[in-house]
């Protein structure tokens, strides 16, 4: 199977790998996993409470190259977006950008779940957008 250059690029040079303080009230953490392939993905966002803009995003993924590329791309996209804009990111956007083959679509689903989980965690901390949080919970 051939992989797109973009997947290889993110796999070989993942962006924004790392971790932020989970207990920081401005940091939302999403931890998701896909047991069938043994992947586990942690994605964090740091939100400016004044503007609602995501100022930083970090990830750490243990899994296949497509899962790493999907979460790496997600952190790139998250930076500079508002929380509400971030919730608009769909797994299909990731599939298209990375030209993921059908068997790897679940990796992009995992990344979308991670974004939603991280934002849901942030919203839970601020107590804001409780209803949106429930809707977005994965």
């Amino acid at each position: 199977m051939a992989y797109s250059d973009k997947v290889l690029d993110h796999y070989n040079h993942p962006r924004n790998v790392g971790s932020m303080d989970k207990s920081d009230p401005n940091v939302g953490t999403g931890m998701v996993g896909a047991p069938e392939c043994g992947d586990v993905m942690k994605l964090q966002v740091k939100v400016n409470p004044e503007t609602g803009v995501i100022e930083d995003a970090k990830f750490k993924t243990f899994g296949c190259g497509s899962a790493i590329a999907s979460s790496s791309l997600a952190t790139e996209w998250l930076r500079g977006k508002t929380v509400d804009e971030a919730l608009q990111i769909k797994n299909t956007d990731i599939v298209n950008e990375l030209s993921l083959p059908p068997v790897k679509i679940h990796c992009s689903v995992l990344a979308e779940d991670a974004i939603k989980a991280a934002i849901s965690d942030y919203k839970g901390k601020t107590g804001a957008g409780k209803t949106a949080e429930t809707a977005a919970a994965v």
Binding site: M31, G33, V40, A137
Partner: peptide, 14 residues
């Protein structure tokens, strides 16, 4: 999907 996986398990595996 992730909702079927206990969060403690994901933490532990991570």
């Amino acid at each position: 999907r992730s909702k079927n996986v206990p969060p403690e398990l994901l933490e532990e595996v991570f």
